[in-house]
Design a protein around this nucleic acid. Sequence first.
DNA 1: TTGAAAGCGATACCAG
DNA 2: CTGGTATCGCTTTCAA
Lengths: 333, 333
Amino acid sequence: MAATIRDVARLAGVSQSSVSRALAAPDQVRAATRERVERAVAQLGYEPSRIARGLSTGRTGTLGFLVPDIANPLFAGIVKAAQRRSRDLGLAVLLADADEDPATELDLIRTLTKQVDGFVLCAPRAADEELRSVCGDLPVVLLNRRVGRLPAVIFDNADGVRQALAHLAALGHRRVAYVAGPRTSWVNRERQRAVRTGAAALGVDVVEPGNVSPDLEGGVAVADLVLAAGVTAVIAYNDMIALGLVSRFAVRGVTVPGDISIVGFDDIPAAALVSPALSTVSQPQDRCGRAGVDLLADLLDDRPTGRARAGGPRASLPTRLIVRASTGPARHP
Amino acid sequence: MAATIRDVARLAGVSQSSVSRALAAPDQVRAATRERVERAVAQLGYEPSRIARGLSTGRTGTLGFLVPDIANPLFAGIVKAAQRRSRDLGLAVLLADADEDPATELDLIRTLTKQVDGFVLCAPRAADEELRSVCGDLPVVLLNRRVGRLPAVIFDNADGVRQALAHLAALGHRRVAYVAGPRTSWVNRERQRAVRTGAAALGVDVVEPGNVSPDLEGGVAVADLVLAAGVTAVIAYNDMIALGLVSRFAVRGVTVPGDISIVGFDDIPAAALVSPALSTVSQPQDRCGRAGVDLLADLLDDRPTGRARAGGPRASLPTRLIVRASTGPARHP
DNA sequence: TTGAAAGCGATACCAG
DNA sequence: CTGGTATCGCTTTCAA
């Protein structure tokens, strides 16, 4: 059996209270006492039980981290960064993978809500009101999503889209497709809107073959529609879809970028590997994950905004177009 | 403030004990009582506090899941499967990413050990004895690793290697490289050994350019050594390394599989996407993740072996070679 | 500066 | 079948 605070107290010849204090507020304890406690702690290899502590403090030292799909490299990268930061802050991470399903998501939040101090919701798919109500007054930080005035870390999607469109327009493309991601994705709606307004401003026609799942299958499934639309370039909701397109295009004998140019989003590792390499709008995953955790930690410690640490409670992170294979349309060399 | 068991008891006009029973063992309570309790529960939206329960039962309803690197698609896939299974079993998952570092790993286990009922350690990098001692007598299930007689789920690495070697030998390769992964990886050692003995049996020469990190960078870094070794084929510790090789080979003007054939391990999604597509030994990630959680759940519930559910406490999952681009050596058409 | 004692929210044993 | 009560391990007043 692991040692408890009582064992330490007994061994050190002091009360439990003193042990507790010696550990939590060392300066409220005489040096001599503190030392005896520390010795006892070391000798017994004592480590306080987090759950027992949780019971009395009402805090668990754990944060809930929700993602739509941990197999998506973007989210894996964000989780990794968040994980590291949490560790540094002494927080544990309860991971929840919602499988891209809004209902599962709400379910997970509901069941986890009792065991965490707060949530980082990465790109949640559920509706605004449902998210609000399910979170109650638990501290929440959103990533890749905006809901009212809740603290959030987002990428500058509009600017990313602008860069992508400007790039394609400069190459001479006049008719591009936007392959939309999940209807439930706030980011998708943002990009969609940005594509529409941005394209109009540049005098570029936009075709939208519809919404697909944000993975390889989604891209493969929609590829033929894209071809049928007679566009010379396509902007995909994310790199997974883009790679799915590449793959299906190859099967159809359509060359990239010769016959059609593609721009994705996220700059996942695989994007640089396919050949020709994928042009993509890169997003700083680590800053995102880190900022999310920082923001939540601030909330937990009651630091109202956390401006100092995370660059504002509603940080917008810059995105950057990475040009790899894209070229102008074939008929316009 | 959320409702407690006391509130429910008061509202239902029964004792706390009865409420507790009505929820945990409904058949030990008169129907009438049970109904009153249920009504009260519904009315108050009561949900028992997991941590309070944890204090008295000594169980947290949470399992610790440790991976070397969540950004590695293999592990992401395994985590996803484990996650789903855990959810079905009513367990929460505390994720820990050790960043491929043995020390971090032990640290994480130590700090998390108090808040979980058991651990699933996926491909842990720490040494046998350290793992044993750090886990104490917490239930532990290993994935991709064998330590003494601890319950484990592993892939049949030897057979995977055998398939890969047989394939290459049949194509006419007589000199192949094995690009090793982390020295700390048990799986790597298994594969390495299998390559050595297997190649000897087939009369194939093996060159080993050394250990690299199991990611793209690792593959890129070692690519030139591989070329210098004058081999016609290479088996890589995993797909990430293999893809790194492909990428660097392209830069060097070496064509795959024309000049050199590559076989990886894991069959991560990206493997099928690069062109030419990567031949690889596929591992059933979902079965692995699921079996790991099942095994641990059995341990927690004191079902001694869990044979029924997971195919044995030390399941060995089949691997399967997926042939994509590999061909025979150029000089041997 | 220290110790005693009252919770925190549930479970589980023991009478009745 | 039900209620009272000790208990889990720690934090936090409140006195001393």
